[in-house]
Simulated assay, not measured.
Amino acid sequence: MILAGRRSALRRPGLPGVLVEAAFGVLLAAGVALETAAVLSRRPAWPVGAVFLLVTAAVCGAALLRRRFPGRAAAVAIGLCAVAELVDWRHGRQGQPAPIACLALLVVVASAVRHLPGPGGVAVAAGSGVVAAGTIERYATYLAQDIPNATTATKVAVAGWAVAVAVGLWRRLGDARRRALVDGIRRTERLALARDLHDVAAHHLTGLIIQAQVAQLATDADPPTTRATLTGIETAGAQALASLRQVVRLLRDDEPEIAPVPGSLAELVERFDGTGIRANLHLPDGPVPADWPSETTVGIYRIVQESLTNVARHARDARTVTVTLAHDGRTIRLRVADDGQPGRVIRPAGHGLVGMRERTAALGGELSAGPGTPAGWTVEATIPAPGGS
């Protein structure tokens, strides 16, 4: 089990993204060079030409920084393009903002609409819409004066803004779906870890409590019993610590899950004898197959572990508990039944029964729990066998 890592919406691009950004930078540099040649060919007054060139270069620079500073890049690009429009309107027939600046602005707008919070994205879309409207007004003026390419430029200005905003919204929705998927996976893994912690802690701590109670009842006149009980407490404590460490290792991305081996079920039942209730393991179809996947063996192990914990906690008058695991090529049948008195059977009210049902459902099976016949409490789980048809 590997926990889903937290990732920022503005994560660093991988190699393909770096290559795309490099190609985009080359395109912007070429566009700035062409615009410089075009401005020099028109020979405007030097302050006007200098403003146009600086605006174009700054807008292109903002486009290259859009991933790192989406809000600031959008504000700079929109403001500078608006300045270029005002200068063009004042001096006329300058064709500003430059085509490469318009392209850079549209890329910045799409990125900002994707990444910024709701109000910021709306502000960028509205501000860039105003700039687009001003650009359309300039091109419409040129169209009326029969300036070449004015019709094409007007269509590009109209469609470009709409496409930029639409692409930003589409990518934003895609990011939201991915975040929802990651959050769902993370929540599922947290629940799985919570079940593991509950099962491990409840099982071992219940055993420790019962053995401590036995030690309190032992007298100085019976030191062998006291020593045996204290040894059992020490062993159970070491096992609890080892199990908790195993669960904690699941929280590390670089540690694989260590699943109980098939023989662990027999060891679990054998250890339960230390609680004072006789435990028996019945395998009518033989041992657990070694080729069962770890999720199946872990699920069965945890269901038995929680069932035995509930017996120790809620069926103090029980004398025996029997774990039966039958399996064929299609179905696994697990049954845990004790012989507690009918009038003293208490249905567990904690998270253990819920966790057992969740584990069984995760394996595609069903679980039932309730008073047994003629006495005690019975837990039964039916799970499809791995590879069964």
Rank of each mutant, 00 (worst) to 15 (best):
Q211T: 01
L53C: 02
P293E: 07
V379I: 09
A123L: 06
L86I: 13
M356V: 01
A259M: 10
E189W: 00
L53P: 08
L363S: 03
H198A: 05
R271D: 03
S389N: 11
V83L: 15
R90S: 10
S128K: 12
L105Y: 03
P16G: 03
R359E: 05
R347Y: 15
Q211Y: 02
D291P: 01
V39W: 02
C102P: 05
R271S: 04
T225F: 12
V18T: 09
I147S: 07
V158C: 13
D222W: 14
A104S: 01
T219G: 14
V345L: 12
V26R: 05
V298K: 13
L208C: 07
A266I: 00
I210R: 08
L64N: 03
R249W: 02
G129F: 07
G376T: 10
I100N: 05
R330A: 03
A29V: 03
E234K: 04
Q96G: 08
C81V: 00
G263W: 02
S294G: 12
P99F: 01
S294P: 12
W377Y: 15
T275H: 01
L268I: 07
D253C: 05
E306H: 00
R252M: 00
R227W: 05
R335C: 09
G352V: 00
A385Q: 07
V354M: 11
G329W: 00
I346L: 14
I210L: 15
L325M: 00
N280T: 04
R114I: 09
V158T: 15
A157M: 09
D253E: 07
R7G: 14
W46F: 12
V108F: 02
A362P: 06
A176V: 15
I2L: 13
R347C: 13
Q94P: 02
D273S: 14
G263K: 04
A180C: 15
I136C: 08
A215S: 10
G95K: 06
G355I: 06
G14R: 12
V113N: 09
V130R: 06
A381R: 11
G14E: 13
G274M: 10
R186H: 04
D183W: 12
P260F: 10
L80Y: 03
Y142W: 03
L308D: 01
F24T: 08
F52Q: 15
V269E: 02
R249S: 08
L265Y: 03
R43G: 05
L106R: 08
A166M: 07
H115F: 15
V261F: 13
L205V: 10
A133R: 09
Q211M: 14
G355P: 00
T225K: 14
T226I: 12
R68Q: 10
A82L: 03
R195S: 11
E85A: 13
L53Y: 01
A228F: 04
A385I: 01
T378G: 04
I136W: 09
E267W: 01
A77Q: 01
Y301Q: 05
Q94N: 06
D254H: 07
A337T: 09
A202V: 06
E85G: 14
T152K: 11
V51G: 11
F52H: 14
T235G: 10
A218F: 13
A62H: 03
Q216A: 15
T382P: 06
G127W: 05
R68P: 09
R177P: 04
